[in-house]
Design a protein around this nucleic acid. Structure first.
Length: 423
RNA sequence: CGGAGUGUGGCGCAGUUGGUAGCGCGCGCCGUUCGGGACGGCGAGGUCCCCGGUUCGAGUCCGGGCACUCCGACCA
């Protein structure tokens, strides 16, 4: 990608209203653009990052048998009526009227914009699942979620429209469901490890769905809006809603460690929903004994765009973003500094070509700008490796990691090998 | 939905006792520069968030809206 063609350009100043780090840096770097409160365009750079995040999620979902598909975002009122979630929370504890965007078309028919897909998956299951031999099933998709948040905030961390991966699994028995639930928990841990996060798994209340606890995946971050408690010795963790105690006390689980209170960003959650949905929506299968039984059900979400914001919150400095290599919009930022009166000994075009041929994604700053400006922008955008060719580098290339101040001269061959090793 | 703050060229801001809008950045052209957001010259660019009121006259005063941000409530 030629930087001279990249849309849009970076900015020196953050928007007046920007308060949170991710808001300032993602907007300045040209990753996202705000349409209104809680509604963002993922610009080319931002979309690249989200696509890489999604690919990591996709690989781990596929590894546990998840099948990717795509469900609609426009839903009829009727399907929400089946579980009672169309209504208000006053007369129905499950009602989701407050967060659902509901509206009528010109003929007066009522619709909602999707904020989750349990009902839609249930409808698919009852149409297509007949026998215990058809189960278990795990399907997922990446799609936009619409939620009428009372207050959108924190840049891209809490939007009214955002991207999420949601996985749904259906099983014949509770035991099978819980076994798969643990597999998903493992898969999520792999995903957030691959994403480079320092995270904790916290328990939260099961609400009305289940007497079992549900789990949240929380990235430790100062700017996070969740407060969690976790053990500094074992894996125990609880969110503020259910934690009874004080920070600094003995861990209630291992009795050895100390409980730590921390701010965090919730990037994923998993819910063993049981048979609540299948009973409401009459989703059953014929078991080996010939009897109709309700399907056991669970849902699992990861907010991809929230991961984007969280990545910036936990990895940046005063100059800009520091992407982890696995989610960076490009692998390498190639910067050419024009020679004054002589030609460069290394042709940046040739370097760009050879890097690309080696499977490395390159943003090539081919613009006629001052060195200072190019470096400042490179720091802002945050690509993990910066390669400079100038008259000073002669036939070599200057290598610098975004998270380090050290520069060194390498041959192109060496530089390619090093980039390869990072992945 | 309560509380607070902010709305002025693309972006960030200034604008006095009310007198018809200015700075920096960015943008266009020319020239000089060329390893940490270079310099000079010329130039383009404005419904001062919207509606109403007061006034000879409103960016400025008054009333009503709208939008965005922050705190709170809320957050399957």
């Amino acid at each position: 990608m030629l930087q001279s063609k990249l849309f849009p350009k970076t900015r020196k100043e953050p928007p007046r209203e920007a308060e949170s780090i991710n808001h300032k840096l993602l907007v300045r770097g040209g990753f996202i653009d705000q349409l209104m409160a809680g509604s963002w365009t993922l610009l080319p750079l931002g979309w690249r990052v989200v696509s890489r995040i999604n690919q990591i999620i996709r690989e781990e979902m596929n590894a546990i048998g998840g099948q990717e598909m795509l469900m609609p975002l426009l839903h009829p009122r009727s399907i929400w009526g089946e579980t009672g979630r169309w209504g208000s929370t006053k007369d129905n504890p499950l009602g989701a009227k407050e967060i659902m965007y509901q509206f009528k078309d010109m003929r007066g028919r009522e619709y909602a914009l999707s904020f989750t897909h349990e009902e839609i998956v249930m409808d698919l299951l009852r149409k297509h699942i007949r026998s215990y031999q058809d189960l278990p099933v795990a399907v997922y998709h990446f799609s936009t979620k619409f939620r009428n948040e009372p207050r959108a905030r924190s840049g891209i961390l809490r939007g009214r429209e955002f991207m999420m991966k949601d996985l749904y699994s259906a099983h014949t028995t509770e035991a099978d469901l819980m076994e798969y639930y643990d597999q998903v928990k493992e898969a999520y841990s792999k995903i957030f490890t691959r994403l480079g996060f320092d995270f904790r798994i916290t328990e939260s209340g099961g609400g009305v769905f289940t007497d079992k606890t549900t789990h949240e995946f929380q990235v430790l971050a100062e700017g996070g809006e969740d407060t969690i408690f976790y053990c500094d010795a074992c894996g125990w963790g609880e969110n503020r809603e259910i934690f009874e105690g004080k920070a600094g006390e003995r861990c209630p689980s291992c009795k050895k460690g100390k409980t730590i209170r921390a701010q965090a960003i919730e990037v994923g959650n998993i819910f063993p929903l049981g048979t609540w949905y299948s009973e409401k929506m009459n989703v059953s299968y014929t078991d080996a004994d010939g009897r109709q039984k309700p399907v056991w059900f669970a849902s699992y979400g990861i907010g991809s765009t929230r991961v984007l914001g969280a990545s910036v919150e936990v990895s940046h400095d005063e100059s800009g973003i520091i992407w982890y290599p696995q989610v960076a919009p490009f692998d390498v930022h190639l910067i050419e500094l024009k020679a004054q009166n002589s030609k460069l000994k290394t042709d940046p075009k040739e370097i760009y070509k050879r890097l690309s041929e080696a499977g490395i994604e390159v943003l090539w700053d081919d613009r006629d700008k001052s060195a200072g400006e190019k470096f400042a922008e490179a720091d802002l955008i945050g690509i993990p490796v910066r390669l400079v060719v100038s008259k000073e580098t002669a036939e070599n290339i200057e290598w610098k990691r975004r998270n380090s101040k050290k520069t060194e001269l390498l041959s192109l061959r060496q530089a390619i090998d090093r980039v390869k090793k990072m992945h």
